[in-house]
């Protein structure tokens, strides 16, 4: 009989993520790619970040990157955020890959809340950190019932949720984590990206992997896969847009903008994607 050590090797240097864990996450990711939108359970490890703070995305990233990769990590579109910087340094220090902020040059991009403005290519992978992977949680609290609904593609309760929203508010109020059908089969919550980014996942060139560490789930949107937001035929899907708003740094009005309040009560707008903003500014000047 052969031992696990003989089969898998000794796992190399001990660190925050050993070889067997990498393999498990890769297996889960492969299953997720094979069944687009299906939430694959995996044995989420303890990470040096708290669960719910990107531990799922971190494990997926650690399972993907090698020394030859260029890793970009963003938080709310920003490379310089505290959480993003720390996660990036953690992975780079552990794997020895290169740090990257230019979306075009990165091979793996881990993100929270955003899909970069620059369209991703087939040779890039987007890893999204997901706090709440289950879109049905809003309408059904029983986990067994949620599983049944997914298994039978019975999403009428979700539609009722949308119906009630429109009846009460006149519009669909859900913004971040808008429920989407993947490949016409599974409902996912692309949390927590804004509606603005949902179309970027539809029939994309790149692979998107979703990692939820606290909830121990991995799911995927493979390249060229349909991602369709749940919408009624007669109520069009609209993305966030403020008429007249433009980035005060680069002047862009077609990117996702965030509001910056000033002390005097006025507001200005800036691009959420700092890398895009910087390049857009250079291009103009």
């Amino acid at each position: 009989m052969r031992t696990i050590t003989e089969l898998a090797g000794d796992g190399g240097p001990r660190g925050i993520f050993d070889e067997l864990s990498r393999r498990e996450v890769r297996r889960a990711a492969l299953t997720a790619v094979a069944v687009p939108g299906y939430q694959v359970p995996f044995g989420s490890r303890e990470m040096p970040v708290a669960r719910g703070w990107g531990s799922g995305g971190l494990q997926v990233t650690l399972a993907l990157v090698g020394p030859g990769d260029r890793l970009k990590v963003i938080d709310q579109g920003e490379d310089g955020g505290v959480n993003a910087s720390n996660l990036r340094r953690l992975v780079v220090g552990h794997v020895g890959c290169a740090e990257e902020t230019d979306t075009r040059a990165a091979t793996v991009i881990q993100s929270r809340h955003r899909v970069p403005e620059t369209p991703l290519r087939a040779d890039q992978v987007l890893v999204l950190q997901v706090p709440v992977p289950e879109p049905l949680r809003a309408v059904e609290s029983d986990v067994r019932e949620q599983r049944r609904m997914h298994a039978e593609a019975d999403y009428s309760r979700m539609w009722v949720g949308l119906y009630e929203d429109v009846v009460r508010n006149g519009v669909v109020t859900k913004t971040a984590g808008y429920p989407c059908m993947v490949n016409g089969r599974y409902l996912i919550s692309p949390t927590p990206i804004p509606r603005f980014d949902v179309p970027k996942l539809d029939r994309a060139e790149h692979l998107t992997l979703f990692g939820a560490g606290r909830e121990k789930r991995i799911y995927a949107v493979p390249p060229h896969t349909r991602v369709e937001p749940l919408v009624f035929e007669d109520i069009p899907f609209e993305v966030e847009h403020t008429p007249g708003a433009a980035c005060r740094h680069c002047g862009s009005d077609g990117s996702y903008l965030v509001e910056v309040p000033a002390a005097d009560g006025t507001v200005s707008w800036v691009c959420s994607d700092t890398d895009f903003c910087a390049r857009h500014r250079e291009g103009r000047s």
Binding site: S156, W159, Y163, F232, E233
Partner: peptide, 25 residues
Amino acid sequence: DLDTSAGGNIAERLTAAGARNFGRI
């Protein structure tokens, strides 16, 4: 579902059968 409106309860059945038009529902 007692916490859903009367219309919403009926909408559940209709959407289960594939209805996707809010006005017609």
